[in-house]
Nucleic acid binder design. Structure first.
Lengths: 170, 170
DNA sequence: TATTGTTATACTCTATAACTATA
DNA sequence: TATAGTTATAGAGTATAACAATA
């Protein structure tokens, strides 16, 4: 496969010392070979995720939502009454990091908190009408962005990619 | 597709106030529905990447290499003489963030820096024999980890996943 | 004038320990 | 005793501006 033996890559420039016919003492690289890294799932998944998120950040700036804000709002939108603890479990977040995030969303009037009907320790998170309307637009924009982002993928390939990624983390 | 209409999810617990027959005032959620997020490439790619990197961190602790250290060392290993600038371009890193990283690798005796043969501004990065030996073990471990990680994928599926991810970011 | 490498620095993200109120 | 939410804080990761040396 692409494993690429530890070859000295494409050396162009070469020696400077007194060995015109032997191996180069100091080599230069004109084209960087990353073929080994490209065999690793982690490397590729991370590079792909960062590329997608880059575009997501730009598109979602209009709504004042970073990726995590979007995820949290989306889960609240589709699960009104969800608790912080449930959000953390579903999105793999740590409770302390969710606190400020939820406070911020509440301060913006996008969500409101209501006592949990059965558990006095818990607090249910609900979208406000303002938050719900915002998320309808934001989710539509995200879905539109998906289509544009995966322009180099067929619809079937995109579906396959989603399924394979979910096999990794679910 | 899985878009999942903004249904109020599976409400279990219900009202507490004086409307026994109408809609619940305060709802609770027993199973969190993330089906919308699962339609987004960015969400899935990020979740998958973090899951893989989690295992990577544990496995590579033995070598004292975080993911970025591993990537940088791997590129140097396969491209002796590569410059910092080339590393940044290849791995999508920012030059200021690479400085400390390279200094650390040099302090550990894993790489050494030699003047670039043709460009007096640049410095070529080369693996030491110690660094080269370490990376041979580390890359073998990473490849082994890949196999274990993708236990739920067939070899063909793993190949497909790599190709599709590369279509996103390359 | 442009580029390589660097410094300083700020900002965000992520992680851990410990506390309270309730179950 | 265990869990939900919170506070404080530390550490890692990522970002921009500006500078010296060389092309």
């Amino acid at each position: 496969m692409a494993h690429a033996a530890p070859s000295p890559a494409k050396s162009t420039t070469s020696l400077t010392l007194a060995n015109q016919a032997s191996l180069p003492v100091v080599s230069a690289v004109d084209q960087v070979d990353t073929s080994y890294l490209q065999t690793l799932l982690g490397y590729n998944a991370r590079r792909a995720a960062l590329t997608i998120i880059e575009g997501f950040l730009e598109r979602m700036a209009e709504f004042g939502l970073r990726p995590v804000d979007f995820s949290v709002m989306s889960v609240i939108q589709h699960n009104p009454g969800v608790t912080s603890r449930q959000l953390c479990a579903a999105l793999n977040l740590l409770p302390p990091n969710l606190v400020g995030l939820v406070q911020s969303l509440e301060a913006r009037g996008l969500i409101h908190r209501q006592p949990h009907p059965t558990d006095g320790r818990a607090v249910g998170l609900h979208p406000t009408s303002k938050g719900s309307a915002l998320m309808q637009k934001a989710e539509q924009a995200a879905t539109d962005l998906e289509v544009a982002r995966s322009a180099r993928l067929t619809s079937a390939q995109r579906k396959t990619l989603l399924e394979l990624l979910q096999k990794i983390y679910l």
